[in-house]
């Protein structure tokens, strides 16, 4: 087997193991119902993480994800109060996401500032903007929200795929096509794998950087839309520290934080692992939610160390 699939294989193995452990511990756990719920409850994290996957594959990082989700939520809620149709406001917010991401990418490349810091400023900016839009929790009352919530596809067993899960799976499919079947996707892997070589091989670094953050912005805005429709409200603190969960999902999905190695589909499983952990802990009932954070941290640690040794074993050049 190609060694670069080891992280992905590990991810899927961990996911299956956790699922089976759950099945062994609790009756009714091994069911499409639980699976469908995990998919729906974590769809916005996974959508955001898909965008983050591209950014991380290119060797960057995007910390503005959580704030973007919050900002999109409050904006849609306020636009709803002003009589906008949720689909119209969603379209507007997706455009905003693309532009905001592109701007971040441009600053990163033009000023040669670490992505970490630029997107950190993005995090502040958008969170501040949330509070400027509204300081209260605002409901979204449009009929479309009920319609959205009622959409579902029945799975074998008692499970359903809710609309959020459907949006997530659709955006995953699009992401897989972008990553593996477009020139842009190849360029992202190339820039993350070895920036200088990529430049010599004719990849336009600036265009790729700007596009990859624009794509990241689009996906976090989409995550915000899904979150707003799922919770049918906008709250200015929504999505705080979600960027961490998204990055954790990407890493657990087998993508190397140093860039260039990983697969978008892994992020689905990475997000599902995070979802499974919290579901398991909630099923237990007696365990504190602290265990969610700690077990995520332990898994993250294990994966990062695994990646570290994998990098030296395949002789990849590490880019700091």
């Amino acid at each position: 087997m190609n060694r670069k699939y080891i992280p992905l294989a590990t991810t899927i193995a961990v996911f299956l193991a956790l699922f089976l452990i759950g099945g062994a511990m609790y009756r009714n756990f091994l069911s499409t119902l639980v699976l469908g719920n995990i998919l729906a409850d974590n769809s916005f994290i996974i959508i955001a993480a898909i965008g983050a996957t591209f950014v991380i594959l290119s060797g960057g990082i995007d910390l503005s994800i959580g704030s973007m989700i919050g900002f999109v939520g409050v904006s849609m809620a306020v636009l709803d109060r002003m009589g906008w149709h949720p689909l119209a406001s969603a379209a507007l917010m997706l455009c905003f996401g693309i532009l905001f991401g592109a701007a971040q990418g441009w600053i990163i490349d033009f000023c040669a500032i670490q992505p970490f810091i630029v997107t950190l400023a993005g995090l502040f900016l958008l969170r501040g903007a949330c509070f400027m839009v509204t300081v209260d929790s605002v409901p979204i009352r449009h009929d479309f929200v009920q319609f959205y919530a009622s959409l579902k596809v029945h799975l074998p067993g008692r499970g359903v795929l809710r609309s959020s899960a459907l949006v997530m799976l659709a955006s995953l499919a699009v992401a897989v096509v972008i990553a593996h079947f477009t020139r842009f996707g190849s360029n992202v892997y190339a820039v993350g794998g070895d920036r200088e070589s990529a430049r010599l091989m004719g990849v336009d670094i600036r265009r790729t950087t700007v596009s990859v953050y624009a794509l990241g912005g689009f996906y976090s805005a989409l995550a915000g839309v899904v979150y707003a429709l799922y919770t049918s409200s906008g709250y200015p603190l929504a999505g705080s520290t979600l960027e961490l969960s998204a990055i954790a999902a990407v890493v657990l999905g087998g993508t190397l934080l140093s860039g260039g190695v990983g697969m978008v589909v892994g992020t689905l499983f990475g997000g599902m692992i995070l979802g499974l952990i919290s579901t398991l802990i909630i099923f237990n009932g007696s365990l504190n939610s602290a265990w969610i954070l700690i077990s995520s941290g332990v898994l993250l640690f294990a994966f990062i160390v695994l990646h570290r040794f994998l990098v030296s074993s395949i002789g990849l050049r590490e880019t700091q």
Binding site: Y189, A190, G192, G193, S197, G260, L316
Partner: peptide
């Protein structure tokens, strides 16, 4: 070697 080791030979 100015290539990208993490990508496939085809790529």
């Amino acid at each position: 070697v100015n290539l990208i080791p993490s990508m496939s030979v085809t790529q």
